[in-house]
Design a protein around this nucleic acid. Structure first.
Length: 473
RNA sequence: GGCCGUGUGGCGAAGUGGGAACGCUGGGGACUGCAAAUCCUCCAUGAGUCGGUUCGAUUCCGACCGCGGCCUCCA
């Protein structure tokens, strides 16, 4: 497989450290509010990567964290008068899990090889890592008792984001605090401010007698510590949104390599952003879309299909039209599967070989749009020859769709097809059937209108039979 | 200002140094009482603009124009 590696700005052949085993880490969310649609992109993209790597026969360990220690959590928990601030992240982690389920994104509850660690579970690891950096003289204690990272001690700082230390310092837009020796230095450990509920003790004194205050982790350190905890000094893939390249991932590399040596992550993957109606999503523009609200109007599967229809490194614009189109496409695909299912059982077992075309598409830096084009082709083949459904096409199709996380529902259920209607509607159906035999089209049409008014969609089939679908409210 | 990316038909979106996938919309046709679904078929002599390399460039290189992102604890 080839992966575009942000570290070297080119597609590279992916070779895991241990053949047949892949370790991947993806930056998760800060659960202080409903997750927005932008958060869904890395979730869906890397879920697809996870499924594909597994389908290729690898043993994959996938870590996706929750940053449940953060300024925004403190702020929000305070604003909303939470008794225990922990209840806020707990609530939104639950919401996130519901959202992910709807998007068919696998989580730790579905798969023992997926881990969803929380920062609060790894404070010890974080403190240990910060102490190592202090011991090595890479980090220093500021006047306020914060611990800061000395970026001049890490020569390749800036490599991932294509910057040099000089450029970064020259272009600084952040006010340099008194504590910082260099403008590019960043906080590893933040001492507790008065009234803040989130605090852990940190016993450390340097050779000059400076002490570290009780406090909480800085922004970047948690990913370094959790990745190290799960994988050790080196692992294969690190993913996240492109905005995290700098400073978050840059700092993460500095911390991990500074404290532990090793490669840290060998392949860095970054997904591009989602725009809403052509504009960047932002709270000030009022076009902020949460997954939760979108799910009121669209199926999670349609959102997933829409998202995978664009390559993950390209920006994608979210419009109602685009989502409607995805929903229509899904309806058409499930319609085909439903018709096929009248003849044969749909193959559902795991481990079925995916098509070579699918493998080639996804092997090329996870080219999901091309993969979806393949699904289209397979659907067309089935539709044009419903008598030939027992061959490889169908088993490939189902396996291919599974890798993309699509078409896993029961077609009849998705389409709302009803097998036994209530007597009243059944009577209307029978009356209409007779009217059709009598060629009384006016009566047939009025009966049809009556059936539709009761919340059904009616389709005539061969031999005078009808198919009824319960229209979703 | 520094760094990164991007510009393909009415719309969305891929691949490719030599016939521009796929989907949506639209035109035509088949099927159907009508409808829906499905199938067949047509629709970019041209890829932001201008140059260069080459037998040949949408694809490589350069310049310019347009758009976007990061440099603000935003995925």
């Amino acid at each position: 497989m080839k992966i575009y590696n942000t570290l070297n700005k080119q597609k590279e052949t992916f070779e895991p450290i241990t053949p047949g085993e892949v370790k991947m880490y993806v930056c998760g969310v800060t659960p202080y509010d409903y997750a927005h649609i932008g958060n869904a992109r890395p979730a869906i993209v890397f879920d697809t990567l996870y499924r594909f790597l597994k389908a290729q026969g690898n043993k994959v360990t996938y870590v996706r964290n929750f940053t449940d220690v953060d300024d925004k959590i403190i702020q929000r928990a305070g604003d909303q008068n939470y008794q225990n601030w922990q209840d806020l992240p707990q609530k939104f982690i639950e919401v996130y899990h519901q959202d992910m389920k709807a998007l068919n994104v696998l989580g730790s509850a579905d798969d023992e090889n997926i881990h969803e660690p929380r920062v609060t579970e790894h404070i010890d690891d974080i403190i240990a890592m910060v102490k190592t950096l202090l011991d090595k003289g890479i980090a220093y204690i500021g006047q306020s008792g914060d611990v800061l990272y000395d970026t001049t001690k890490f020569e390749s700082y800036g490599k991932l984001s294509g910057n040099t230390l000089e450029d970064l310092q020259a272009g600084q837009r952040v006010a340099v605090s008194d504590d910082k020796r260099h403008a590019t230095d960043f906080v590893l450990w933040k001492s507790t401010k008065v009234g803040e509920p989130m605090s852990w003790s940190f016993e450390y004194e340097d050779k000059d007698g400076n002490k570290v205050n009780a406090g909480r982790p800085g922004w970047h350190i948690e990913c370094s510590a959790m990745a190290h905890n799960k994988f050790g000094n080196s692992f294969d893939i690190h993913g996240g949104g492109e905005d995290l390249k700098f400073p978050h991932h840059e700092c993460e590399i500095a911390q991990s390599k500074g404290s532990c040596g090793g490669d840290h992550a060998r392949y860095w993957m970054h997904n591009a952003f989602i725009n809403v109606d052509g504009e960047k999503m932002s709270k000030s523009l009022g076009n902020f879309k949460t997954i939760h609200s979108l799910l009121e109007k669209y199926s999670g599967e349609a959102i997933r299909l829409w998202m995978l229809s664009t390559h993950y490194r390209k920006p994608v614009d979210m419009t109602e039209e685009a989502l409607d189109r995805a929903e229509e496409k899904l309806k058409s695909w499930y319609g085909t599967l439903y018709r096929v299912g009248q003849t044969v059982d749909l193959p559902r077992q795991d481990g079925t070989e995916i098509s070579s075309y699918m493998r080639d598409s996804l092997s090329d830096d996870l080219n999901t749009p091309l993969a979806i084009a393949q699904i289209e082709g397979q659907m067309s083949s089935l539709n044009s020859d419903m008598t030939n459904v027992e061959g490889e096409i169908l088993s490939n199709l189902m396996a291919d769709a599974q890798v993309l996380g699509l078409l896993q529902q029961d077609p009849a259920e998705y389409l709302g097809i009803v097998s036994d209607v209530d007597a009243e509607v059944q009577a209307l159906v029978e009356k209409r059937k007779q009217a059709k035999v009598d060629k009384d089209w006016a009566l047939a049409d009025s009966l049809k209108a009556e059936i539709i008014s009761k919340g059904y969609e009616l389709t005539d089939k061969a031999g005078g039979e009808v198919e009824l679908r319960k229209v979703k409210p």
